[in-house]
């Protein structure tokens, strides 16, 4: 089973929920993999450490146009789906915008004179680590300044394979990196907080997941903060509320030390076990 942990708003507790779920699943002796897909800011390794067994570079090809050979026919521009090529026939000028090139190779086929070649461009690193209990941790880390982290996330997902239980820590927002992460998931846990910002971004995430036809449930973090609106909204929409995590100073203290409440507090451990059970029940329906 593949479970993605996501949120519209950043900082609501995706990694908090993902790491604690990983802990309780591993504690139960289950074969579990946790993949950190928040490639622009991966931080699972702050809370769960393993022994690194592999580091793999992720790269992509980038089209390169030789202006000496180019006849300025404009075919490559017409074939490019991503508007990455500007070709001005009359002025005899051609430009390729690196950031917009998706490595599709269409321009190479289109060019009648062989003026386009490819060069490799580095995008990031996929790190694989093993915990003491032989569970797998995978981290997608995009290089700083990379235009899109999606190819790095996809490489991490491919590396993750199909273990009995796969947890995916998603990037915030609802743009391409989020879509790439939730695409293979059987279920999505949306983490929110009971504030106007939390609710606004939760509703955007819900709209996106409904379009993707993904089953999902909600964890409200920092319950007691803000207001009750999120609970009314969930009830109105018939969205399952998986858990309320209280706005508790104890959690902040444990987490700030880089530890997990599920490992140090029996009540929280029980709560996270229950989330996993609820998700599995909802998936079987």
């Amino acid at each position: 089973m593949k479970i993605a942990i996501a949120s519209g708003k950043g900082g609501t507790g995706k990694t908090f929920v993902a790491t604690n779920l990983f802990y309780v699943a591993a504690k139960e002796g289950r074969q579990v993999t946790l993949t950190d897909c928040d490639a622009e800011e991966p931080n699972v390794s702050v809370f769960i450490q393993g022994k690194t067994i592999e580091e793999k570079l992720v790269s992509q090809n980038l089209a390169v146009i030789d202006p000496q050979l180019c006849i300025y026919c404009g075919k490559c521009r017409d074939w490019c789906e991503y508007n990455a090529i500007v070709c001005l026939e009359e002025q005899r000028k051609i430009y390729l915008l690196d950031d917009l090139c998706h490595d599709c190779g269409a321009c190479l086929v289109a060019c009648p004179v062989g003026a386009i070649t490819e060069k490799e461009r580095r995008l990031g690193v996929i790190t694989t680590a093993i915990t003491k209990k032989n569970n797998v941790l995978i981290e997608a880390r995009a290089d700083v300044g990379v235009y899109s982290s999606v190819p790095v996330i996809k490489a991490a997902l491919a590396k993750s394979g199909h273990p009995p239980l796969l947890l995916l820590d998603a990037p915030p927002g609802i743009s391409c990196p989020f879509i790439a992460t939730v695409a293979p998931a059987d279920f999505v846990i949306l983490v929110t907080e009971p504030t106007p910002f939390g609710l606004n971004d939760l509703s955007l995430s819900v709209q996106t997941l409904e379009q993707l036809n993904k089953p999902f449930g909600v964890v409200v973090n920092r319950d007691g903060l803000g207001d009750e609106k999120v609970y009314h909204w969930l009830e109105e929409k018939g969205i399952p509320l998986l858990m309320k995590i209280p706005f508790d100073k104890k959690i902040a203290e444990i987490y700030a030390r880089g530890h997990l409440p599920a490992a140090e507090d029996e009540t929280y451990k029980k709560h996270f076990v229950e989330i996993l059970q609820k998700v599995e029940e909802l998936c079987e329906k």
Binding site: R77, Y82, N83, A84, V86, L88, Q91, L97, L100
Partner: peptide, 30 residues
């Protein structure tokens, strides 16, 4: 309504008309 690259595609359109000046509210880096 282009998904990506609306800026460069519009440069293509405008520049192919042979203009010397462009007046607009803002221009992106590309």
């Amino acid at each position: 309504d282009a998904i990506e690259g609306a800026g460069p595609a519009s440069v293509q359109l405008v520049a192919s008309k042979g203009v010397d000046k462009v007046i607009s509210g803002e221009f992106g880096n590309k």
